[in-house]
Design a binder for these strands. Structure first.
Lengths: 214, 214
DNA sequence: CTGCAGCTGGACCGGACGGTACCGAGCGCA
DNA sequence: TGCGCTCGGTACCGTCCGGTCCAGCTGCAG
């Protein structure tokens, strides 16, 4: 907690330890849950002493928060990918293929084992970490939704598509696309993610039901 | 574990104890989760000794299973209610009001605090109780979906509606109806359930998007 | 070379938890 | 009325966990 202004030589030698702990804790938490994971196992998995864990994070709850908020970085990256995909559209006939590709990626990510495990983990602890759960939801699934909605609005603005309410359409697309699969998957850990044909079928169906273009 | 054939006098005097334990355990599990609930607290809340808990259920896991599968009885009752609502439809012009009423009830139940808490609880323990989680999903949300699909198919058979794929339409209705709300609510425990206007808006939207009638 | 800061391994603590052993009370049966 | 058996209450056991403390080692700065 040093507040030295213009810190001259940031000693980054402690970063590897922190990163290793976060990585190890992420794996353990995702696999076993928060309560069932002991700090001893985390330290052992990170090849670090337990004291170092407590030096870096203070207590187990803070470590958990670091883990949960840490993975939202990948959600940000995913959002950027989606934004870029829609921003690359130049001509009206490119809209549908781009949207189909976006939906495919979206479903694949939302139904990937890691994302599902993270959802289970955060939902499981939502009662004990309410603000953390809300923050995760805001930064990950909801942020993706907003990103897609913004992408749709951008298409409209550039005269490439007609969408009345981009926010609603984005949400409808998402939940017709993978709502049922997501619901099922949350209760069935270990289920393999959808294969290519299944993804195509999901996208086809969502596209048919919601009709995002006009 | 006595297997007396033709047990003459069923001693139902132990039923109250069992029922009290299940009721108390349900409240505790829903509020605190499986791991954070001690059998001592359950026994105390049920006004019963811990020994009685172990006499009745053997161990904590079996008690948990009894709790989770116990609440699926209410899901069955709810399914019967929905079936009756659609079975009461006699004339084509009654279809839409009946469906709107059904969707309202469906959303209200799916987004009720107890159902949400149960979802969180079972999802949280899905890793440690895979078959139990699968069974719960099969008996509660999936059963409701199948019930609604069967009701739609029945309407079709009686010439009161035209629905191409009742299973898909039921799922689409459900997830356009409350998919987004359900997702949000899972991460925000303690949020009040939707009020009457919100429910109406959800139903309107789902009806507009999915158009179940032809 | 010397000091120092931080890491390591490990012992340790207080407490909580799942599960059990034991014992007294109450009930059915004669 | 007496007897035996079953059931519930209490006290207890072993274990594990979050968190702390300590002594020794290591690598960098001056």
């Amino acid at each position: 907690m040093r507040v030295d202004p213009a810190a001259p030589s940031g000693r980054r030698r402690d970063e590897p330890a922190r990163a290793a702990i976060v990585r190890a804790a992420t794996e353990q938490f995702l696999a076993e849950g928060f309560q069932a994971t002991s700090t001893d196992r985390i330290a052992a998995a990170a090849a670090v002493s337990k004291q170092t864990v407590y030096n870096q994070f203070g207590d187990k709850r803070s470590l958990f928060a670091a883990v949960v908020l840490g993975v939202t970085a990948t959600a940000e990256a995913f959002g950027a990918e989606l934004t870029a995909a829609l921003a690359a559209v130049r001509r009206p006939e490119e809209v549908e293929p781009a949207l189909r590709m976006l939906l495919r990626r979206w479903a694949a990510v939302a139904l990937s084992p890691r994302v599902l495990a993270m959802r289970r983990l955060v939902i499981a602890e939502a009662g004990r970490f309410p603000e953390l759960a809300a923050e995760y939801h805001r930064r990950a699934p909801e942020a993706t939704l907003r990103t897609v909605a913004a992408g749709l609005a951008d298409l409209v603005e550039r005269g490439l598509a007609r969408v009345e309410d981009p926010d609603r359409v984005a949400a409808d697309l998402a939940f017709v696309l993978f709502g049922a699969e997501l619901d099922r998957a949350l209760f069935h850990p270990g289920t393999p993610p959808p294969d290519a044909e299944r993804l195509d079928a999901l996208v086809d169906h969502a596209f048919r039901v919601v009709r995002p273009l006009g």
